[in-house]
């Protein structure tokens, strides 16, 4: 997972690229594989949830997301966690610049 977080005045901008094939049911069938895709993503800053999305098979491969949240200071951490359809979960962290 690649995360870039940047303090911009009273808010923080976050860009994240998650590594995941995001195989839709149709794509999976074509490839003879099982469908699997990220279904839920959250981001936290200093323990507080600041971003939350439930997702589907129709996000592009290696999903990219950009979002903002209120507050966040240079040097603090942003922690992003995803869960996929099979229950695999991954967490990445980055310091706010």
């Amino acid at each position: 997972m690649r995360i870039k977080a940047k303090a911009k005045g009273d808010k923080t901008e976050v860009k994240v690229m998650m590594k995941h094939p995001m195989l839709s049911y149709r794509e999976a069938k074509k490839k003879g594989k099982e469908a699997n895709f990220i279904v839920y993503v959250t981001a936290k800053n200093e323990g507080a949830v600041v971003y939350e999305v439930s997702t589907s098979q129709f996000l592009s491969k290696n999903p990219y997301m950009k979002f903002y949240f209120k507050g966040g200071k240079k040097g603090e951490e942003v922690e992003i966690t995803w869960v996929d359809l099979k229950g695999k979960t991954k967490t990445g962290k980055a310091k706010i610049k």
Partner: peptide
């Protein structure tokens, strides 16, 4: 349905994603 966002207390509803 592609995605459903809940906006937390400190969230700013200004979002970008890439879809199929």
């Amino acid at each position: 349905v592609v995605a459903i966002f809940d906006v937390p207390e400190r969230g700013i509803p200004d979002y970008s994603v890439r879809i199929k």
